[in-house]
Structures are given as C-alpha cells and as structure tokens.
Design a protein around this nucleic acid. Structure first.
Lengths: 166, 166
DNA sequence: GCTGAAATCGCCTAACG
DNA sequence: CGTTAGGCGATTTCAGC
C-alpha cells in the first residue's frame, strides 16, 4: 500500500492540514511534534507526491446565492469508452456540474450540481444536460438539506486499520 | 440576496481562496488589487460572516489507501421529523459516511461513503447502515472513476448573474 | 467609514551540523 | 531531524482620503 511510505508524523500532518489548511507551518510543526524546517520539507514532499492535491477555502454556497443543489443520475445510450469520455468532457465544461462520477449498477453517472435558483437549473437540465449527445435518461433529485458534508477522508479509520494490521 | 453585501473585491477574494486556500495574504492582496492590511481585514470579516467556513487540504483518498467510494440511496420507513433527525445523527457518527443529503423524490437520503476496501464497506453496509433503526431500503452504487470533483462553487456563474441583473 | 504606509513582530526557509 | 540566521510576510498602529 502507498501508505507504507508514510510514517505517523506524515499522517498527522495530512490530518491536521485537512482539518485546517491555512495553519502556519510552525503551528503545524508544534502539533506533530517536530521542528518547523523538517515539517515544511515533509509538507512539500507530500504535495509533490500527490498526497495533497491542493488547498481550498470552504465557501458557503447558500451565503453566496447558490440556493439549489441537485443530484442527477444520468444514463447514456452507448457505454463505449469513447462515448463515456466524451460525456465526461462535457461535464468538465459545465460550471454548474461540480462532480461527475462514473458508477456501476443501473445508472452510468451521478452528477452533483449547484445553481443560483431552480429556473437556472431547469434551463441547464433541459437545454444542456438532457439535450447532450448520447444522453438517454436523466433523473434529478433536489437536496432538501445537508445533514453532513465533510470533505476529505476519515483518518481515524486509517489509523485503526494500521493498528490492527501491525 | 446576501451577496449584495459583497463587493467585487470580496468576491475575488473568495474565488482566489477557493482556488488556493494557502495563498499568502500579500499574494492575495496583489491579485485583488489592494494592499495587504485591508485585504486581511476583509478575509477576517468574510470568515466571521460565515462566507468562509474553513480551509482544507485536498487529500487524495486513493493515495492514502481509500480505494472504495460508494453512493448509497437510503429510504426510511418513517419520514417524521424526529426519525429523519435521528438518522442524520447516526450518519454524523459514521466516519465512512462523508456526506449525507436529504432529497426529495423517491429516495430519502443520498450518502457518499469512502472505505479502504470493499470488505470494509460491505461490513459497514450490512452491520451498520442496513441494520440501523428506521432504514427501509439501501441501494448502493460503486464509483468506477471520477471524471470531475471540484469543491466549491462556480464564481463565473455568480458574476454572469450579477452582470445581467445590473 | 474606508484605504494605504510604516513599523514591529513572527514566520518561512535556506544552509549547516 | 534540529539549530541558526536572514529575508519576507503578517499584523498592528497611525495618518490621509
């Protein structure tokens, strides 16, 4: 497993930066129990190795006027690789689509979308998504409320697992 | 709308910090075209007003050994508010569940889950989720691949909208 | 009220042991 | 990995618009 290359300090660094990505390096170093320079070297290494893909402010969509959040299940007519890739490329171009995941099972893709209001989403749905090449079916479900919305991974689970395997 | 209280500089700050949450304040100030002190004051204000909920490192789940990502559609027997809240509370306690959204339409909730491997997820599914009180049905779909996974909101859409309304 | 300029303080980040 | 040290950023203070 790739995590073999990570020692407990590296994992602590990742967990801390996932919880607070704007923490200063000295604060981070204090929390993981080493001095600042090696801590910074580890962070750089983790970034370059791809463990850390970036840092993002978590902006509240509703505060900014994005009142509508929708999950869309999309079925395609053709599942040939070229057609799947073409649909994925379309999704990357649509700003209202924030996530596009290919699934097994009955539907082919699930999309997470945001929009300022329902009419903006409806227009996107009818004029763009449903109208796109190769799209056979679209079933949408409006989000009523978010009970949980945690970015990232549960480091607790990882630690339990490593403790058990050791 | 709440965004009325935000001027173009504030929106630029939010967009920049969403794209790179670890940017230094002086770099941010340069990009939005003001000097560092007022820039920092604006950031603090945006944080306190709830526009910025936090900052997170974007950690790659697969690199860390979370190979499995699953969407689960959950239907409940009772949709009474107390029962909905009870289920949401359970979801908050399960570390494998990263997101829990209440939906309209046929299913009641959609859950985004991660797990180190299939057997860990299967165990969670059968012993925890399906076995939980009030759960009537669970349909799961494994994620084959991610075509797009962008956190946050599309500021381009917001700007277009403000330009049109003006 | 805001912004910007100057000054202080603390952090970042080399180089070395 | 730690320590040292120089340069840069963060943050407060204060003046100006």
């Amino acid at each position: 497993m790739a995590t073999t290359r990570l020692d407990p300090i590296d994992r602590k660094i990742l967990a801390e930066l996932q919880a607070d990505g704007r923490m200063t390096n000295v604060e981070l170093a204090k929390r993981v129990g080493i001095s600042a320079p090696p801590c910074l070297r580890r962070v750089r290494t983790l970034e370059e190795a791809g463990f850390i893909r970036g840092y993002h402010a978590d902006v509240d969509p509703r505060e900014l006027g994005f009142e509508v959040q929708v999950f869309a299940n999309v079925g395609l007519q053709s599942q040939a690789e070229a057609d799947l890739s073409a649909f994925e490329a379309r999704c990357r171009d649509w700003p209202l689509v924030r996530e596009c995941h290919m699934l097994n099972g009955e539907v082919d893709f699930i999309l997470k979308c945001v929009a300022p209001d329902l009419s903006t989403f409806q227009r996107f749905l009818t004029e763009e998504l449903t109208a796109a090449a190769n799209v056979a079916s679209v079933k949408t479900a409006l989000v009523i409320r978010d009970a949980k919305d945690q970015p990232g991974v549960p480091f607790e689970v990882l630690e339990e697992r490593l403790a058990r395997d050791a």
